[in-house]
């Protein structure tokens, strides 16, 4: 692939999704885009990019789908889900009036393992929740990965990564060589397409935001902007969970660590916000 072509792809995916690729990734770009060329019957990446840039939205989406990395697994890294169970839900239940809906957002949900893991944790907390409504919203920029998430179908490799066998037996049916998560679980998650570069204005406020293993692909100014918007969408006493290699440190001052759990990010209270101060007290 020639230098101008790779630069064209780099520029496109950066503008479209915020993802930063470098010219060393030429091999990756080629490997990911070749199947698209084949399936679309297009002669070259150049031609694909011309069409995507000239407003063929379907092709533009195909390029985005091909260049996003969707690596994920059930209960990834364990600790965030333990925090969710042992710290976040108990604190929220103590602070929120009975009956008030809790709202959770997985902001880069990939094939759905993250929101589905949360459904399983919430099931275990049924007694504590005592009928309190919990909404789980899950979004991603990739339409292809969202349709996989909504299908609830996973292969043998995927259901063995991070998922205890007990949960496999409890929630999955075998369909051919694959495993189908129960439709009841799928129904509990509201999947929708959302690009983190956009303004999440109409989404209301969330109590918990999982934004894990996606900001690593962005540059610092983009991360700062996204942190700002997440902070706007998070309740003043809400919780933000990041991936193991991600941090707000040196990027934004809108979050700080939870007093007990360093890896748990909570909005930094501002002096001008006395209501929030009492909320966390």
């Amino acid at each position: 692939m020639s230098a101008p072509v790779i630069l064209r792809v780099i520029d496109f995916i950066n503008k479209a999704a915020g993802i930063v690729l470098t010219t060393e990734k030429a091999y990756f770009v080629e490997a990911r885009l070749s199947p698209v060329l084949r399936e679309e019957g297009l002669p070259s990446i150049d031609e694909l990019m011309t069409r995507a840039e000239r407003g063929d939205r379907r092709l533009a989406q195909r390029v985005i789908d091909a260049l996003t990395t969707n690596e994920t697994f059930f209960f990834r890294d364990k600790t965030p889900f333990e925090h969710f169970r042992n710290v976040i839900i108990p604190e929220l239940l103590a602070r929120r009036p009975a009956g008030k809906t809790l709202r959770i957002w997985c902001a880069a949900c990939s094939s759905g393992q993250e929101p589905y893991s949360l459904v399983m944790v919430l099931d275990e907390l049924k007694a504590q929740l005592a009928g309190r409504p919990v909404e789980i919203h899950a979004s991603d920029i990739s339409e292809a990965i969202l349709s996989k998430a909504k299908s609830g179908i996973f292969n043998q490799f995927e259901v063995q990564r991070g998922l205890p066998t007990k949960m496999l037996l409890q929630y999955f049916q075998k369909v051919g060589d694959n495993w189908q998560i129960s439709p009841e679980v799928v129904k509990r998650v509201n999947f929708f397409k959302f690009n983190l570069l956009e303004e999440p204005k109409t989404m209301g406020t969330f109590d918990v935001i999982f934004c894990r293993n996606v900001l690593i692909y962005f540059d610092r100014p983009t991360r700062a902007k996204i942190f700002d918007r997440l902070a706007d969408r998070l309740a003043p006493d809400g919780f933000l969970l990041l991936g193991g290699a991600e941090s707000t440190f040196g990027v934004t001052d809108r979050f700080t660590s939870h007093p007990k759990e360093r890896m748990l990010h909570v909005p930094l209270m501002r002096r001008a916000d006395p209501a929030a101060r009492t909320a966390i007290a």
Binding site: Q156, T165, K166, L168, L169, Q173, K174
Partner: peptide, 11 residues
Amino acid sequence: ENDISHIAKAM
């Protein structure tokens, strides 16, 4: 063996 009945029996 990766059908549900085998897995359940083992567990």
